[in-house]
Structure formats: C-alpha cells, structure tokens
C-alpha cells in the first residue's frame, strides 16, 4: 500500500475515535447522572419543599427550587422576548439589509453572547446595589434576562434573516407598511424558528447558576413576591453537594437528574414544536 493511503487510514481511524470519544462523553454524563440519581428520586423530591432538617437528611423535597427555577427562567425569558423580538425585527425589517449599522449590531451581540454568566451575575449585582435591591426573584430575573438576551436576539435574527426579501416585497406591494409586514408576515413566517430560540433561551435560563448566585439568593420557601429571594435548581444541587451526608448528596444527584430531564424535555419540545408549526410557512 502507498504511504499516503496508510496515512489516510490512520487519520480516519483517529477521526472516528475522536467522534466516538466526544459522543461517549455525552452518554457517560447522562448515564452517570441517571444511575446515581435514580435511587434517590422520589415523589417527595418533586412535590415537597424542604422540611425542617432537610439538609441533615430528613424529609422533604426540592419543589422550592424547581418552581423557583421555572419562575425565574420564565420571567427572564418573558423580559428577554420583549427586548429581543423588536431588536431582531428592527435589524431585518426596518434597517437596510447588510448596512454597516446592522453588521455593527450583530457583531456586538455576538461578542455579548460570549460574556460569561458570572460576569452577568456580578453586573446584575452592581445594578441591584445601585437601586438598593436585595437578592430576590426580580434580581435573578434581571440577571438571567441580560444573560439570555444577546443569544435570543442573535438566534431570532438568524431565523428572521431567512425570510425571503420577496415575501416582504409582496406585502409592501399591497400597501402594507413595515410594522404591518413585520407583525403579520415576517413573524408568522419565522414563528417556528422564533419559538425554538425562545425555548433554547429558557433552557439556558433554567440551567444557569453563576448569574443567580449573587442575585437571586436562596430560600426553602416558594417565593410569593418578586422581591423575595428564590431558590434555583442548580444552586440547590450545589448546596446539597456541599453537605457531607450521603443521603443529602444522593438527593443532589437526584436533583441533577431532575434538572437534566427538564432540559432534555425543553430541547425535545423545541424540536417537535418547530416541526409542527411549519404549516403556514412558505418555502
């Protein structure tokens, strides 16, 4: 065999190996969490808040953290949509395509996407101090909203960008203005993609810990107002892991399993939803 063929064989082997390593790391992570968490998973975990002595191994669950994470990520996603959708529409409908302004905005949002969540947490914290706020649901919502906003803008921007120019022209030619075209045609055409962006951002919001560590606080109760502190699932996992009691650590693994399942459901929903909603989309 020629040398160059041997080289190709070797590298092809290495490539397959690398792909296997990367995929098996995913499998390994999911399996570990499943195997370690399943024995400790119980109905009480998902239906009760921590009872007295929960962190010493006594009864209760982490409903506070599950609901807290949903509140927090839900609020943040809502806030982020209010900002992101108009921005994405502005870049694609109101601005001239490919103008310098649009490129500069895209560049900025790309850069913002890479800012670590701990920095958003620290920045959110300085805002809170500035307004004299304490760690609370609202504080966490603001920090997470800032964190997911750039990603949401960019992913919505990417799907809205795919709307054919001619489709917008068709609407303009009927005398519609840009606002009407944006709402009735552009949003409708890119709805599946927009919803996917939203769900992905929501998943990000649920899974993030570093941005809420300063801003959301932690509590065993389910918050009743925006100004109360709130527990989140990732922090609940983190704190339970810190307790050197096997029972509590086991429940940390179970909590990690719950978090992972929630994330998987969200990403599955994103996939299914975008398939389902393509009814009206014009190809």
């Amino acid at each position: 065999m020629e040398r160059r063929n041997i080289e190709e064989k070797i590298f092809k082997g290495l490539m397959l190996l690398s792909t296997m390593v990367i995929l098996s790391s995913l499998v390994l992570i999911l399996l570990t969490v499943l195997v370690k968490g399943l024995p400790y998973l119980s109905l009480a975990m998902v239906t009760q808040v921590p009872q007295g002595g929960y962190y010493l191994g006594k009864g209760g669950g982490i409903l506070n953290a599950i609901v807290g994470s949903l509140y927090l990520a839900g609020g943040a996603t809502f806030l982020a949509i209010l900002l992101s959708l108009p921005v994405a529409l502005y870049l694609n409908v109101y601005s001239k395509s490919d103008s310098k302004f649009v490129s500069a905005c895209r560049f900025t949002f790309d850069v913002l996407c890479g800012v670590p969540s701990i920095v958003y947490g620290a920045f959110g914290f300085t805002i809170m101090i500035f307004f004299g706020m304490r760690a609370s649901l609202l504080g966490g919502i603001i920090a997470i909203a800032l964190l997911i906003m750039p990603m949401m803008i960019r992913s919505m921007d990417e799907v809205i960008r795919l709307v054919p120019r001619e489709l917008m022209d068709a609407s303009y030619a009927l005398g519609a203005n840009r606002w009407e075209t944006a709402l009735k045609v552009v949003v409708r055409q890119s709805l599946p993609g927009i919803l996917t962006s939203i769900l992905i951002a929501f998943g990000r919001g649920i899974g993030d810990a570093a941005a809420v560590i300063f801003t959301a606080g932690f509590t065993d109760a389910i918050p009743t107002s925006l100004l109360r502190p709130v527990a989140t699932l990732p922090l609940a996992i983190f704190f339970q892991l810190g307790v050197p009691i096997p029972e509590v650590q086991g429940r940390a693994y179970a909590s990690a399993l719950i978090l992972t399942i929630m994330i998987l459901i969200i990403s599955l929903a994103a996939r299914l939803l975008s398939k389902k909603l393509t009814r009206h989309v014009v190809k």
């Binding site: 990367i22 570990t32 990403s267």
Partner: peptide
C-alpha cells in the same frame, strides 16, 4: 446540541 444544553452544574456533578 444536547451536550451544549447540559447545565454546567450537571457537568460539575459528573
């Protein structure tokens, strides 16, 4: 994509 979506705490636990 799933790997990208796994929360960092879960990576930490693993």
């Amino acid at each position: 994509d799933i790997l990208a979506g796994i929360p960092s705490v879960v990576f930490g636990v693993w």
